[in-house]
Simulated assay, not measured.
Amino acid sequence: MALLNFRKREKPDTPPVNGQIEALLRGYSIEVMPRTAEKVEDFRALLPQGTRVYIAHIEGTPIEDMVATASRIAAEGYPVMPHFPARIIRDRATLADWIARYQGEAGVDQALVLAGGVTTPHGDYDSAMQLLASGEFDRAGFKRLHVAGHPEGNRDIDPDGSMTNVSAALKWKQEFSERTDAEMAIATQFAFDAKPIIAWADALREAGITLPIHIGIAGPAKLQTLIKFAIACGVGPSLKVLQRRAMDVTKLLLPYEPTDVLAELAAHKAANPDFNITNVHFFPLGGIKANATWAIDHGGASTRPANPA
């Protein structure tokens, strides 16, 4: 198989790599689902070595498919972080079984623990806090646990549009991080405007929440695709960025790229080294290949992948 060159591309028709964006993209992660992973012949042709790959667990996906996807991606040399959505896990025995399967079949030792987008819980759990408090991840020796963050709020948790419950949950998770051996971080929903993201991150730090933030960013995609996903996922005021773009006929048919939002976040981080956004987490809504190619073109890879066996 011919592999992509993971050095910076030198193309006469493309602008030079923005060094600040390149710095922010170091250690980026990306999210897949079993059905999207099936379309990728070999992740080593797309992603730099060491890229963390999250596997989203959508309601109705059998755990066998999740574990098989994790096993396949791990075998290609990538650290895998499956979702553990509380509201589709029936009980503690199910949680322990999932953890054991992931560990035994795919060597998994990290997880994104979240409530999940299901309205009615399938069993005993309805929050990430309950899963963490069970102690099952610590008993299994998980080395890394990520939790969800919502820079523009979450109406499933705070229907009134406030961030009261979301903020209280993050304070609990901050306290939990101080008594678990696992490294913890916040992985967020995607947004399209840097200013509210920066304000939210600063507010967390002022509230004593010091967990590193892996900021969710939507990868390149058709504008109509992004608007559809943004509405479905409850993206807040930054949706206006897409709506303004949709009204500009010169941009309507062009694919959206996350260059502007990342440039502003990267510039802020360069000017404020203690800024608590440490990593980028991509949602490849326009396809994994398109997202990976964009990342490469913007300096998001500095090493060549291992040759596939």
Rank of each mutant, 00 (worst) to 15 (best):
Gly77Gln: 12
Gly208Thr: 11
Gly216Trp: 02
Pro258Ile: 12
Phe275Asn: 03
Ala185Lys: 01
Leu46Gln: 05
His83Tyr: 09
Glu31Trp: 02
Leu114Lys: 00
Val80Gly: 02
Tyr125Arg: 08
Gly50Gln: 03
Arg245Trp: 06
Glu175Arg: 05
Val261Trp: 00
Phe229His: 10
Thr61Gln: 09
His146Ser: 13
Asn272Lys: 10
Thr225Met: 09
Leu204Trp: 02
Ser162Gln: 13
His122Gln: 13
Gln103Trp: 11
Phe137His: 10
Lys39Pro: 01
Asp65Thr: 06
Gln243His: 10
His150Trp: 11
Val67Gln: 00
Arg304Ile: 07
Asp260Tyr: 07
Tyr256Ser: 02
Phe275Pro: 01
Pro48Ala: 13
Arg90Tyr: 05
His122Val: 08
Ala246Leu: 14
Gly104Trp: 02
Ile21Tyr: 00
Pro79Asp: 07
Ile198His: 03
Gln224His: 11
Glu178Gln: 11
Leu131Asn: 07
Thr94Ile: 11
Ile277Met: 03
Asp65Arg: 12
Lys173Glu: 14
Glu152Leu: 09
Gly107Met: 08
Met81Cys: 13
Gly300Trp: 00
Phe192Thr: 09
Tyr256Cys: 01
Leu285Phe: 12
Ala271Cys: 10
Val40Gln: 06
Leu4Thr: 07
Ala194Lys: 00
Pro212Leu: 08
Val235Asn: 01
Val17His: 03
Ala111Gln: 01
Pro308Leu: 03
Arg92Ile: 15
Gly50Glu: 02
Ala301Trp: 00
Val261Arg: 03
Thr164Pro: 02
Arg245Ala: 11
Arg139Ile: 06
Glu64His: 06
Lys251Leu: 15
Pro79Glu: 13
Glu152Arg: 08
Glu136Arg: 08
Leu131Ile: 15
Val118Met: 10
Gln20Ser: 13
His281Val: 04
Lys171Phe: 07
Val53Trp: 06
Ala267Pro: 01
Thr303Gly: 04
Leu254Thr: 14
Ser127Thr: 15
Asp260His: 11
His150Ala: 14
Pro151Gln: 05
Lys240Phe: 02
Glu41Cys: 04
Asp42Cys: 12
Gly135Ser: 11
Val166Trp: 00
Ala201Thr: 09
Val261Tyr: 02
Gln20Cys: 09
Phe84Trp: 06
Cys233Val: 02
Leu265His: 01
Gly135Trp: 14
Pro82Lys: 06
Asn165Arg: 12
Asn276His: 12
Lys269Trp: 04
Val241Arg: 09
Gly60Arg: 04
Asp126Leu: 04
Pro220Ile: 05
Arg44Ser: 03
Val53Lys: 04
Lys173Gln: 15
Ala271Gly: 13
Phe282Gln: 00
Glu22His: 05
Phe43Arg: 01
Ala191Arg: 04
Leu242Pro: 15
Gly77Tyr: 12
His281Gly: 06
Pro273Gly: 13
Leu47Ser: 06
Asp138Pro: 02
Gly141Val: 04
Asp13Ala: 05
Asp202Pro: 03
Ala271Arg: 12
Ile296Thr: 10
Met81Gln: 10
Met129His: 13
Glu76Tyr: 09
Val108Glu: 01
Lys251Glu: 15
Ala301Pro: 02
His122Asn: 14
Ala185Thr: 08
Ile198Arg: 05
Gln224Thr: 15
Leu204Ala: 07
Phe192Asp: 07
Thr69His: 02
Tyr125Ala: 05
Arg87His: 03
Gly104Asn: 15
Arg144Leu: 13
Asp65Pro: 01
Pro255Ser: 03
Leu46Gly: 01
Phe282Lys: 01
Gln243Val: 11
Glu10Lys: 15
Val17Ile: 15
His57Asn: 12
Ala292His: 00
Asp202Val: 05
Ser302Thr: 12
